[in-house]
């Protein structure tokens, strides 16, 4: 009887793209998102209702613009605010956590190209944020009579804004070495961009100089584009909004890709 021959399993073969690897990363982050649904989904939902209640009682109804109720104006703004914030958190928190706990080596040593790693972090953050948006939108729609003008604009701007904020989150996540760095960016950049994005109030009556500051804020462009999908009016041109969002996404995508490729703050 011949002795048993130990066979080495041959390495898995894959083509130019390691689809299974990307899918595995995607699944891991998505599972994480749903496991903490109490914080990642229910948290934004409660906050959204709170903002609606505050604005309802503080402003006492009324109209934002002729023919458009204040609630229908603020509703989409709140949804976009929650979505943008969720995408930033989803893009940044996992990679910081993986770096601090040392699990990042599992990703780096796997046969994944920098672009595949980028997709594995950014895509789950984007779809999770859109899930947050859908849940918040459904809740807001219970209390607010929301018209629908263009479904394409709604979905398109939801995707573009989530992608941009997820990419921004990833760049910040790679850069941050501790939670302090992350929370500083959140406090001094993300919160002001989000709150001062015209999500909660019309910017029509602001002085020219202040209005200009709003227009350079990408979240303002996202809010206006997204809101156009509902009420059919925007303070900015849709082409400009779409170009700003995709242009910045491209730029941040390049930065994140280079960071991953050279191993900036990831590889020793």
């Amino acid at each position: 009887m011949p002795p048993p021959v130990a066979t080495t399993p041959i390495p898995r073969q894959f083509g130019p793209v390691n689809w299974r690897g990307v899918y595995t990363l995607y699944k891991r982050e998505t599972v994480r998102f749903y496991r903490y649904a109490g914080e990642t989904l229910a948290g934004p939902a409660v906050s959204a209702l709170m903002f609606l209640a505050i604005f309802h009682f503080a402003l006492g109804g009324g109209e934002a613009r002729p023919g458009i109720s204040l609630a229908a104006f603020i509703g989409p703004g709140i949804v976009m605010f929650m979505m943008a914030h969720g995408a930033f958190e989803g893009g940044s928190i996992p990679i910081i956590f993986h770096k601090m706990e040392g699990m990042i080596t599992d990703v780096i040593s796997a046969p994944l190209t920098p672009l595949e790693i980028l997709a594995g972090y950014v895509l789950p953050a984007t779809t999770s944020a859109m899930t947050v948006g859908a849940v918040v939108l459904a809740l807001v729609a219970v209390f607010v009579d929301l018209p629908v003008h263009s479904l394409t604009a709604i979905v398109g701007f939801a995707f573009a804004a989530s992608l941009l904020m997820a990419l921004l989150g990833l760049v910040v996540g790679i850069w941050a070495e501790r939670w302090d760095g992350y929370s500083a960016v959140e406090t001094f950049l993300i919160a002001p961009l989000g709150f001062l994005s015209g999500a909660f109030f019309p910017v029509d009556n602001l002085p020219e100089a202040v209005r200009w500051a709003f227009h350079v804020n990408p979240i303002f462009q996202a809010v206006e584009g997204f809101r156009y999908g509902f009420i059919g009016q925007a303070q900015t041109s849709l082409v400009l909004a779409a170009s700003v969002l995709s242009g910045m996404s491209l730029l941040l995508g390049l930065v994140a890709w280079r960071m991953l490729a050279v191993g900036y703050r990831i590889k020793p």
């Binding site: 302090d180 500083a184 406090t187 002001p192 709150f195 001062l196």
Partner: peptide, 22 residues
């Protein structure tokens, strides 16, 4: 930064929103 400055910034942002909105 997280325990003193962040709350101050957040508070000022709320003030700004409501001042601009209302």
């Amino acid at each position: 930064t997280q325990t003193l400055m962040a709350p101050v910034i957040t508070t000022l942002l709320f003030l700004a929103i409501f001042a601009l909105a209302l």
